[in-house]
Design a protein around this nucleic acid. Structure first.
Lengths: 204, 204
DNA sequence: GTCTATATGCAGATAGAC
DNA sequence: GTCTATCTGCATATAGAC
């Protein structure tokens, strides 16, 4: 009575199978376009089961986004060491995470945030409060400049993620990580710490 | 018998009204989520009329994207002048276009490209063949480096557009254009012309 | 726990009356 | 040119049988 990979007779990994399929579907099509029916089909379960386990599509999305990566574990490695190379270490860590299987959650969040306001809020809050604020707090620059510096870093890193993992523009989609560390690392470093004279009008 | 703004009794600007409503809807919700029915309602016409004029949703999107801005008119101003300030002029021109009403088409294309493969192709082709290639052809750098240089510029500019016009992350969403010219201009300049030693493995 | 059946709604597209 | 009516399909969600 050997059981195959796709199907689940009992209840063993059903929940996990649904979550995996959901992450893949959300990453592939974004929140709105990913359907519970397709997720259920990919997981080899009935669509009604998805509702049974997670209640609604929103809650399924939240569950699928949870615990892919905790910035609090990664950021100490970024912040420690030569302060003039924080940008390169940040880009290297960023690419390591996004080049791993954990990237599905990131791509899903990014894809969804573009067409869906409440997922956009999730993205903003993650980027700002979980990542940027923690990095910026360790810098020795004028606090009034921090919001703009953080925004600029976000434009470069999210742009990199968009082009490399979502739009898949070549050659940046296939470029070796260290090449990107060497090229966009200095950009991030400049946004974080370089003097920004024409700054004061920048606040919202 | 004065006619109000919203409604159209005869056939005068019906087509244009539909196109305006379509641009706004596609910019607001992206290709997939924008519905012909909602576009028709916004334009004050019957949904069947939209099909009558444009045939299909795809063709409507193409018509709405057409002729917002022609890079061939703008790029000479970017390329002329000090070669060390091409990055700043490119960013300035970029922001001028995106801060104008013409940005609706850009936002629509960007929003749509994220969830929809054929609009992503449109975006890639526009960025690469209409903009980047024309800029890169005027640079005096190793031709083998051009694809990666172009990709890097795209990550920064598209990231900027995403954060400023789509995700609307503050403060970059409200920052004065000249502040951004002064801060991200040098980044673009570096990607275009600075020596990139660790480059050769970058080709797809 | 799992699945069938269904309620409800909105999508794109088309035929044909006026 | 414009609109009514309808076809077809897929979505989320729920009730309830087994």
């Amino acid at each position: 009575m050997a059981r195959r990979t796709g199907r689940r007779p009992g209840n063993p990994g059903t929940r996990e199978a649904i979550l995996d399929a959901a992450r893949a579907a959300f990453a592939d099509r974004g929140f709105d376009a990913a359907s519970i029916r397709a997720i259920a089909a990919a997981a080899g379960v009935d669509p009604a089961l998805v509702h049974h386990y997670f209640g609604s599509k929103d809650q399924l999305f939240l569950a699928a986004m949870e615990a892919p990566v905790d910035p609090r574990e990664l950021l100490p490695g970024v912040l420690a060491g030569d302060p003039d190379a924080i940008g390169q270490r940040l880009v290297r860590t960023f690419l390591t995470v996004w080049d791993s299987p954990a990237s599905a959650a990131g791509v899903a969040l990014l894809r969804s945030a573009v067409s869906n306001e409440w997922t956009a809020r999730l993205l903003r809050e993650f980027v700002v409060t979980q990542v940027l604020r923690r990095v910026l707090d360790h810098l020795d620059v004028d606090p009034a400049e921090l919001p703009l510096r953080g925004s600029l870093v976000a434009t470069q890193l999210i742009g990199l993620a968009m082009m490399r993992y979502v739009i898949r523009l070549e050659p940046v989609a296939s470029t070796a990580p260290e090449t990107l560390v060497a090229t966009v690392g200095p950009t991030v470093q400049r946004y974080l710490t370089a003097p920004l004279p024409a700054l004061r009008d920048g606040a919202a």
